[in-house]
Simulated assay, not measured.
Amino acid sequence: MPARAAEPEQLAIMVGGINKLIYLPARLAERLGYFRDEGLDVELQSQPTGIDGENEMLAGAVQGVVGFYDHTIDLQARGVEVRTIVVFSQVPGEVQLVAAKRVDTIRSMADVRGKTLGVTGLGSSTSFLTKYLAQRAGVPSTEYTLLPVGADSSFIAALRQGRIDAGMTTEPTVTQLLKAGDAKVLVDMRNVDGTRAALGGTYPASSLYVQTTWLDAHPREASKLARAFVRTLRYMHTHSAAEIAAQMPAEDVGNDRELYLSALRASLPMYTADGRMPADGPPTVLKVLAGFNPDVKGRHIDLSRTFTNRFVDGVKP
Rank of each mutant, 00 (worst) to 15 (best):
I156A: 10
T130H: 06
A110V: 04
Q161T: 13
S154I: 10
T105C: 02
R107N: 01
P148T: 12
A151M: 11
T142W: 11
M168Y: 10
D152N: 14
A157E: 13
G150Y: 09
G162S: 08
D152I: 11
A134L: 04
A137L: 08
D111T: 04
T142R: 11
I164K: 00
M109D: 06
A157V: 15
L133S: 05
S141Y: 12
R160P: 07
A110L: 05
M168R: 14
T120M: 15
D104H: 07
A166E: 02
M168T: 14
L159S: 04
T116E: 04
L129Y: 12
S154T: 14
L117D: 01
F128M: 12
V119H: 02
A110G: 10
S153I: 11
A134V: 01
T142D: 14
T105D: 05
T130L: 09
T170Q: 15
R113V: 04
A158Q: 04
T126R: 01
Y132K: 13
T116L: 01
L146M: 12
I106Q: 01
S125K: 10
V139I: 12
R136K: 15
A166C: 05
D111E: 02
G162Q: 05
I164F: 01
G167V: 02
T120K: 13
F155G: 12
T126Y: 04
L147C: 06
G121L: 13
K131C: 09
Y132R: 10
V139C: 01
A110Q: 04
R163P: 10
P140W: 13
G121I: 06
G150T: 08
T145D: 08
T170P: 12
L146E: 03
V103H: 03
T170M: 15
L129V: 14
K131W: 03
D152W: 11
